[in-house]
C-alpha cells in the first residue's frame, strides 16, 4: 500500500471511530443478516445493558425490537433477483444510546416495486391509535390478513406497540430497480408512568 493510501486508510479508521462516538453509536455492523448474527448482536447488546444496570423492561424492549428488525431483513427477503447473491440478506445495523433513549436502526436494499406497499403499510400503522393497533395485531395473527411477505407485517405492528412511538422510516432511491430502506426504532429509557 502506498504511504498516502495507507494514511488515508488510517484516517478513515479514526474518522469512523470518532463518528461512532459523536453519534453515540455503541454497535455498527454491515454484512449478512442471519439468525446467528441476530443472536450474537442481541446478546451483546443485552449483556452491555445488563452491566450498566438498565432496567429489565427496557432491556427486553430493545431485545425485542432488534430481533424483529433483524428477522425482517434475514427472513423477509427483500432480495434482488437481478443482483445475484451479493446483497442477499445484507444490511446495516446501528445501535445507539443516549441518556434518554436507545435507538436501533437497520438499513437494507429492497426492490423498488415493493416500496409502495411497504410505505403504505407503515404509514397506515402510524395512523392507528393504541386500540386500533391492538385490533389490527390480533387480526393479523388470526387471519394473517394484510400481510407483507411472510408475515413481516406483525413485526412492524409490534414494534410500534412495544416502543409506543411512531415508526421512522425512509426510502432512498438507488437506481431503477432498487431502493435503500432505513428503519429506526426508538426505545425511551424512562418507562411511561
Amino acid at each position: 500500500m502506498a504511504l498516502r493510501q495507507k494514511n488515508k486508510f488510517l484516517e478513515f479508521v479514526y474518522d469512523f471511530y470518532s463518528s461512532m462516538k459523536n453519534h453515540e453509536i455503541s454497535l455498527a455492523y454491515e454484512g449478512e443478516m442471519n439468525h446467528q448474527v441476530m443472536k450474537a448482536f442481541t446478546n451483546l447488546t443485552i449483556e452491555k445493558m445488563s452491566r450498566q444496570s438498565e432496567n429489565n423492561p427496557i432491556q427486553k424492549k430493545v431485545f425485542h425490537v432488534m430481533v424483529e428488525c433483524l428477522q425482517n431483513i434475514s427472513k423477509h427477503a427483500f432480495h434482488s433477483e437481478l443482483n445475484s447473491e451479493n446483497d442477499l440478506n445484507n444490511g446495516v445495523l446501528l445501535v445507539s444510546n443516549t441518556e434518554e433513549f436507545y435507538q436501533v436502526t437497520t438499513g437494507n436494499i429492497i426492490e423498488k416495486n415493493k416500496v409502495k406497499d411497504l410505505n403504505e403499510f407503515l404509514e397506515m400503522i402510524n395512523e392507528l391509535d393504541d386500540s386500533n393497533l391492538r385490533n389490527l395485531y390480533k387480526k393479523q395473527l388470526k387471519e394473517g390478513a394484510i400481510s407483507l411477505k411472510g408475515g413481516a407485517g406483525v413485526g412492524f405492528i409490534d414494534i410500534k406497540r412495544k416502543t409506543g412511538r411512531k415508526l421512522e422510516f425512509h426510502f432512498l432511491p438507488l437506481n431503477n430497480s432498487q431502493s435503500f430502506f432505513i428503519f429506526t426504532s426508538t426505545i425511551p429509557r424512562k418507562l411511561k408512568p
Binding site: K75, L141, G151
Partner: peptide
Amino acid sequence: DYFNTASSKLIL
C-alpha cells in the same frame, strides 16, 4: 420469558 412475533402465530 420471551417470544417473537413469528412464534406468536404458532402459539395462537
